[in-house]
């Protein structure tokens, strides 16, 4: 059984099908990009993975656990916006990542608090935000906010990381730096990632696989009659061209 198992899930809002019998699976450590036109259910799919919504039919299981009923610490998430807490400084945001789930009132004291601060400071150094540790998120650039949001999500050591157009609001230059940042983190942690994106190039660049969501049939009389599903599942390693690695030994020295 795969690490993430999606079995024939369907989702409809008020009788209007959005997703129709979506099945897929992902191995641990895989980076899955999700692309598709607007309104084809890719964000819905992510919300279902997140357990923010429950599917009308079908089940999603992560690491063999029974389907979750609401978002929990085994899933990490970064949205396009509003992913950090505006009333906490950068450092407090990272401390809160450890503290919120620690007990039922979400606060830490004494030695545990010290330990969480230590972890937060280490993380700040690693993501290059140590110089703005005491600033509030509103004072940060969009790229910095997203870096903070990703670090915050990873602090809770989730089993899968879900990214909902995380770089959609960034300018192209910042986006490329963020790609490098994300790839670095991923190489370090070996995290399983699902990322919804509008940017095809981004999806192929970062992903091991690219899932395309679309409606399999189009009913001209009733465009809303059919829900979307996964129509393509590309292998996106090696820049999206499968089998470009040499499959046999040619006994000719080649330069890679």
């Amino acid at each position: 059984m795969s690490f993430v198992e999606v079995e024939r899930i369907s989702q409809s809002y008020g009788g209007r099908p959005i997703l129709d019998r979506v099945s897929t699976s992902a191995e641990e450590g895989e980076f899955v990009s999700i692309v598709g036109a607007s309104g084809c259910g890719k964000s819905t799919f992510l919300r279902l993975l997140l357990a923010q919504e429950l599917p009308t039919r079908g089940r999603i299981s992560i690491a063999g656990a029974p389907p979750a009923r609401e978002p929990g610490p085994d899933r990490g998430v970064v949205f396009q916006r509003y992913s950090v807490f505006p009333h906490m400084s950068v450092r407090q945001n990272l401390v809160a990542a450890s503290a919120l789930g620690a007990n039922f009132w979400g606060g830490l004291f004494g030695a545990k608090c010290k330990a969480a601060q230590k972890v937060a400071d280490d993380a700040l150094d690693r993501i290059g935000l140590a110089h703005v540790a005491h600033a509030y998120p509103s004072a940060l650039s969009g790229g910095m906010q997203q870096r903070l949001a990703i670090a915050q999500a990873l602090m809770a050591r989730p089993k899968i990381l879900l990214l909902d157009e995380p770089f959609g609001a960034l300018d192209p230059g910042t986006r490329i730096t963020m790609h490098a940042f994300l790839m670095e983190l991923r190489a370090e942690t070996g995290m399983t990632v699902f990322m919804v994106t509008h940017d095809l190039a981004e999806g192929f660049k970062l992903g091991d696989r690219v899932l395309v969501f679309d409606k399999p049939r189009w009913d001209p009389a009733d465009p809303n009659a059919v829900g979307a599903t996964i129509t393509y599942d590309f292998d996106a390693r090696d820049g999206g061209i499968p089998f470009q690695r040499l499959q046999e030994t040619t006994h000719v020295p080649i330069e890679l």
Binding site: L50, Q52, E70, P71, G72, P73, R75, G76, V77, F79, R81, Y82, S83, V84, F85, P86, H87, M88, A96, A97, A99, L100, G101, A102, N103, F104, W105, G106, G107, A149, Q152, A153, M155, A156, P158
Partner: peptide, 27 residues
């Protein structure tokens, strides 16, 4: 409050009380 913030807090393991005290109350 943006639902994203609440979901984010939930994914960090926060209970409803923790969300109330640490996310909603200060704001």
């Amino acid at each position: 409050l943006p639902p994203e913030q609440i979901v984010k807090a939930q994914t960090l393991g926060a209970t409803s009380l923790a969300i109330g005290l640490r996310v909603a109350l200060p704001q």
